[in-house]
């Protein structure tokens, strides 16, 4: 356990050594950002709308008392989306979608000697392979989470129209009521940290693959499982520190 942690930290240090040539690395960063950001847009949109809708219906159901104003449901659904559902559930899904592809891509390069080929040329393989993925992770996951928040709130609105549990006007009033910028800051800190966790842990698992196709698969699985566990742990830590 401590040995792996040491190896992980060492690998991260190597990843952020000065690049041989900035332009080549920049290209890699752009490619990874497109692949993570644009590539995950579809799945993130779908889950965000559905979870936003479900949350709103559920909160409306729990608050069906004549003593509380109906619009409160909008505020609660909004905060739940911003603070927990958008950052955490999106990141868990991204661990599966993005993390597993990072791990298997790097793992395949390891077992087919492509990483050896990089090193033989004098390329710092961790820097070339891992740092662009981490940069893409810490920029694109927050971006996706912002989109997810907006779509989640939209999902709630759609739920109001469809089910009529609360009127859309009440919902909108609730969403605008008592909004605190801190919640968005918490969401962005979470997204940044989760993006880092996904990219670094999955790259680490891939980088230290040995064997063949079977082991590449195992690395991808391990990367996703460890990322998810660390995301949930970090979620708890950040929530308890910042709120």
């Amino acid at each position: 356990m401590f040995q792996s942690l040491g190896k992980y930290i060492l690998l991260l240090q190597l990843s952020f050594k000065k690049p041989e040539k900035f332009s080549v690395y920049w290209r890699e960063v752009m490619l990874e950002m497109v692949s993570v950001g644009i590539g995950s847009l579809g799945i993130i949109s779908i889950i965000s709308v559905f979870i936003g809708a479900a949350t709103t219906i559920q909160v409306a159901f729990q608050l069906s008392s004549p003593l509380v104003p109906r619009s409160i449901a909008g505020s609660i659904a909004r905060d739940s989306n911003i603070l927990e559902f958008s950052p955490t559930i999106s990141s868990l899904v991204l661990a599966g979608r993005v993390g597993s592809s990072f791990a298997s891509q790097i793992g395949t390069m390891r077992v087919t000697e492509q990483i050896d080929a990089l090193e033989i040329m004098g390329v710092n393989a961790p820097g070339y392979l891992i740092s662009p993925k981490i940069i893409a992770g810490v920029t694109m996951v927050p971006m996706l989470v912002i989109i997810s928040i907006m779509l989640g709130i939209t999902g709630g609105y759609i739920a109001c129209i469809v089910t009529g549990d609360i009127t859309p006007a009440d919902y909108i009033m609730g969403v605008n009521d008592g909004f605190d910028g801190l919640t968005v800051r918490v969401a962005l800190v979470k997204a940044f940290v989760f993006g880092f966790i996904i990219a670094s842990i999955c790259s680490y698992q891939g980088f230290y693959t040995s064997g063949g196709a079977l082991e590449v698969g195992q690395s991808a699985t391990a990367g996703v499982v460890y990322s998810c566990v660390w995301i949930l742990f970090a979620d708890l830590m950040i929530t308890s520190i910042m709120l």
Binding site: Q114, D116, A117
Partner: peptide, 12 residues
């Protein structure tokens, strides 16, 4: 140094 690997190790 140039090296040719057993399975060529081309960047795929």
């Amino acid at each position: 140094i140039g090296m040719l690997f057993q399975n060529s190790a081309l960047f795929d």
